[in-house]
Design a binder for these strands. Structure first.
Lengths: 244, 244
DNA sequence: CGCGGATTTGAACTGAATCAATCGACGTGG
DNA sequence: CCACGTCGATTGATTCAGTTCAAATCCGCG
């Protein structure tokens, strides 16, 4: 039994998978009806572009399912992933005309899209909503700074271990976790080797070699190239900060 | 002739050097009086700690003059500067109990300090004020992501050129600019070689060598180790993104 | 079953780190 | 006024982690 919004449309939000974890969680029932009225679903296949760098921003979105990579690209083709977002993250740069980066679906993605104008109006009318987005932004900034330490100062093996540890830790939220076998965590990697390399500031070859080392060290197992089991989480954590 | 606040104190804000550029710019005269009442000046000498990592946050501040570095440090001593802030930037991490990084004065610094509680109350009562801080945070996030591209994908010479270009561009705002001689820009470096290395993810030796190369290429001149003149700004920009 | 992109593996190379002096500016005290 | 010590910066020689170039090999999929 679904609620109806004022204009008679089905109230999708009430059955939304990320209803309580997304920014919308800061909204009341009435406000939710308002946002429901302007929201549209959009499915993006893995590898497709969501927003180009320098493209005019016309919408914002919640990630309902899947993974999105935010990438910076240099004139000569070198690229760096500067943000990785999963459900229920918010996607978009408020208060700016053009996108400062390239947003692409890393896996198949389901978005809940809001037109820019209406969303910004809602934002200015609901201080609690803006505060929630502000807090999310601060968390993203903290994450970006953690990643700066990784990019600037960690070795290749620490980088790869840190990445796998991060995915393992977040896999239940990301929705890529398999039923936890035995003691370890198992999950499907949301990124290709090439994406991992672009996220860590390495080459694919180095990523592959370092994953190989973790495998021979008995810290992880690979069932397929993108199916990982962490068999020694403590060992992985140690490898991530080189305390071993 | 200075204004008096309600409690009779001198209204310092009205003569503040960063009055119109700092977050306080979002406040009305009344609100300014309120914040003036809780603000205190604090002078920090170069090299002194403003806030330790994991230390409980008890205050926020505006940087009135000087440069502050935000640093992440690993257990084995490796460190990475994850943010560099200048007047009139805002200093502090709202909505969090403990500081996610170490904040240290890079040069002598003058701060305008607000106690946490009062500041947060003001923040929640004045939506415009919170929005202003939100916008500043988004800009910091953009800057952090630009730096991630630098850390992950640029070469040592590109990193050093990018850094000098950034300082040259911002030197008028930072207050380290000398009267512009001839065509070029001259300024005082707000960081030591060691700090520059920690900001770029390099060693001091590499930083020194790359600055040397820019000097022999006729792009910059060094009057003293920290006194720089950019004689070929286009050349510097080209070296920063390797389009040359 | 075979094709094509993704991944792994190997060998050689190189950019930046490391190790090691030396230099220079500045403040202190003889 | 100059020798001395300190700290930051430069310069040089060597090493090594990670890249580059070049083949295999592995899957996923029609």
């Amino acid at each position: 039994m679904q609620m109806m919004s004022l204009n008679g449309e089905v109230m999708r939000c009430s059955s939304c998978a990320i209803r309580h974890r997304a920014v919308c969680g800061a909204l009341s029932e009435d406000e939710l009806a308002a946002i429901n009225a302007i929201a549209r679903q959009r499915i993006v296949k893995a590898g497709e572009t969501i927003l180009n760098a320098d493209e005019e921003i016309t919408f914002f979105a919640n990630i309902v399912a899947g993974s999105v990579k935010l990438t910076k690209i240099m004139a000569d083709g070198r690229q760096q992933i500067v943000g990785l977002q999963f459900a229920p993250d918010f996607l978009g740069r408020a208060f700016r005309e053009r996108s400062p980066y390239f947003a692409e679906a890393a896996t198949d993605v389901e978005l809940c899209v809001f037109p820019k104008k209406e969303f910004e109006r809602l934002l200015s009318e609901k201080p609690g909503f803006e505060m929630r987005l502000f807090q999310d932004t601060l968390n993203e900034l903290d994450a970006a700074r953690d990643w700066m330490l990784l990019l600037g100062r960690k070795t290749a093996s620490e980088k790869v271990a840190s990445f796998l540890e991060m995915i393992a830790r977040r896999s239940p939220m990301i929705g890529c976790a398999h039923t936890a076998e035995q003691a370890g965590v198992s999950f499907h990697l949301p990124l290709t080797r090439s994406d991992i390399a672009d996220y860590l500031g390495l080459t694919i070859e180095t990523v592959s070699r370092q994953i190989g080392k973790l495998k021979s060290a008995g810290i992880v197992e690979l069932h397929a190239t993108r199916e990982v089991s962490v068999t020694d989480m403590d060992g992985l954590r140690a490898a991530a900060s080189s305390e071993a």
